[in-house]
C-alpha cells in the first residue's frame, strides 16, 4: 500500500486553477521528487497536503486514512512534517530551541506542569534536549546549537528547518526547495543528507528546481505543468520524455 495517495486533487484561487485533477501515490521509503516550471503548482501542492489551505476538490489519503482538510497540527501528529521554500524558522529562538520545538509531538508536559516545573517536566526537558542535539548532529549543526537562529546564514537555516522536522520523527518528510540558494558544496552535502534521511526509514517528498540534484537522488519523479500531471516515472524516463523536455524548453 502507498504511504500517500492523492486523488483528483484540485485548488482554485479565484478563477485560477493552481492544481487540477491531480492523482498520484507515493510508496513508502523512497525519495519522490516533484518538478515543474515556475508556477506549476508545486508549493501549492505542499500547502494542500499539509492543509495550510484547503483543496477545492479531491482527497488525500495518508497511510490509508483520509487527511483532507484535517487541521495542520493533526496532520503533523500522524507523522507528516515539512520544510518551507521561504524559510519559516523561529527567528526568536536559538538553533537548539528551534529543534526542541520539533520534539513537541514526542513530549507532553502541559502549561500548568511547566509553570510549577514538576519533576516529570525536568526529566522530559533533559530528554528533549538530548533528542534535539541528536537531530542537530545528524544535520551537522552541533557547533551552532546555542547560536540565535536570527544570526545564522541562509544555508544553515535551511538545514535547521530539516533538523527541526527530523526531530519530530516523521514518517513522511516534505522538503520544499531545500537546495535553493545553496552553493555547490552545500548542495552536495544536502544530497548526502537527503539520502541518509531516506535510509533512516523516512519517505521524502521533494520539490526542487535543481535538476541534477533531482535526477541524481530521486527514486521517482513527478512532473507538474500548469497544475496538471505531465509525466510520472523513474528519473531516466522523465529525462527522455519529449513532453517534459518541451515544457521545460518552453515549447
Amino acid at each position: 500500500m502507498a504511504l500517500l495517495d492523492v486523488k483528483n486533487l484540485g485548488k482554485k484561487f479565484g478563477g485560477l486553477k493552481a492544481i487540477s485533477d491531480l492523482s498520484f501515490s507515493v510508496p513508502e521509503n523512497i525519495i519522490f521528487s516533484i518538478i515543474g516550471p515556475n508556477g506549476a503548482g508545486k508549493t501549492t501542492l505542499f500547502n494542500l497536503l499539509t492543509n495550510i489551505y484547503p483543496p477545492t476538490s479531491g482527497s488525500i489519503f495518508y497511510n490509508g486514512r483520509e487527511i483532507t482538510r484535517m487541521p495542520p497540527y493533526r496532520i503533523a501528529r500522524l507523522g507528516i512534517s515539512r520544510t518551507f521554500q521561504n524559510l519559516q524558522v523561529f527567528l526568536n529562538m536559538s538553533a537548539i530551541e528551534n529543534v526542541m520545538v520539533g520534539c513537541h509531538l514526542r513530549s507532553k508536559s502541559g502549561l500548568m506542569a511547566s509553570a510549577i516545573r514538576l519533576p516529570s517536566v525536568i526529566r522530559e526537558e533533559k530528554e528533549v534536549r538530548r533528542m534535539a542535539e541528536k537531530a542537530l548532529e545528524f544535520c551537522g549543526l552541533s557547533e551552532f546549537s546555542h547560536k540565535p537562529a536570527a544570526g545564522l546564514p541562509y544555508g544553515l537555516l535551511k538545514k535547521l528547518e530539516v533538523a527541526r522536522s527530523l526531530a519530530s520523527k516523521p514518517r513522511l518528510l516534505l522538503m520544499d526547495e531545500p537546495a535553493a540558494g545553496l552553493n555547490d558544496t552545500e548542495t552536495t552535502e544536502l544530497c548526502g543528507l537527503i539520502r541518509q534521511i531516506r535510509d533512516s526509514g523516512i519517505t521524502v517528498l521533494l520539490v526542487e528546481h535543481n535538476m541534477s540534484l533531482v535526477m541524481e537522488i530521486s527514486d521517482k519523479v513527478l512532473v507538474l505543468n500548469y497544475g496538471k500531471l505531465l509525466a510520472h516515472g523513474a528519473p531516466k524516463d522523465i529525462q527522455e520524455n519529449p513532453e517534459v523536455v518541451a515544457a521545460y524548453l518552453g515549447e
Partner: peptide, 17 residues
Amino acid sequence: RALSAIHGSDIAAETMG
C-alpha cells in the same frame, strides 16, 4: 517553546504539531 514558536511563525508551529 510552543508559545515562542507561535510568535516566530504560527504556520511552522502548526506544522510541527
